[in-house]
Amino acid sequence: MYDAGKIIVGLIIGIGLLLFPFYYNAGKAAKAPEPQLTPKAKEAKVCVAETSYMKTSHMHLLERWRQEVVRGGERYYTASNGKVYYKSVEETCLDCHSNKSKFCDQCHDYMRISPYCWDCHIAPKETK
């Protein structure tokens, strides 16, 4: 191998840079936040779908709603228990979960996700 020394040094530097985020953040693991429920949400007990489904797949549901409302003009959602909801993040979701910062943002921040919904849609003012 030509220039073995240079290559090995280069490799070490390269791998070191690659691993930088790991040792930079080592020992600083942040605790996963728990979404908090408002009294109204607690009282309702059920969301528009199963809690387990909502936990993992709320974004897919919202995306489907968005598609159905904007493109299909279908604005009402019938839940499995027969209840009808108006498909709207601001008017339906955030009506119960009026604590956006504690219910949504906290976890999104933790996951480094910034949904661009709020570039346009306006979250209702939070009552503290």
Binding site: V84, E91, T92
Partner: peptide
């Protein structure tokens, strides 16, 4: 009271 009114209605009524 948009959605509130709708929640009162059963799907068929709606």
């Amino acid at each position: 009271g948009g959605k509130a009114a709708f929640e009162l209605l059963a799907p068929k009524e709606l």
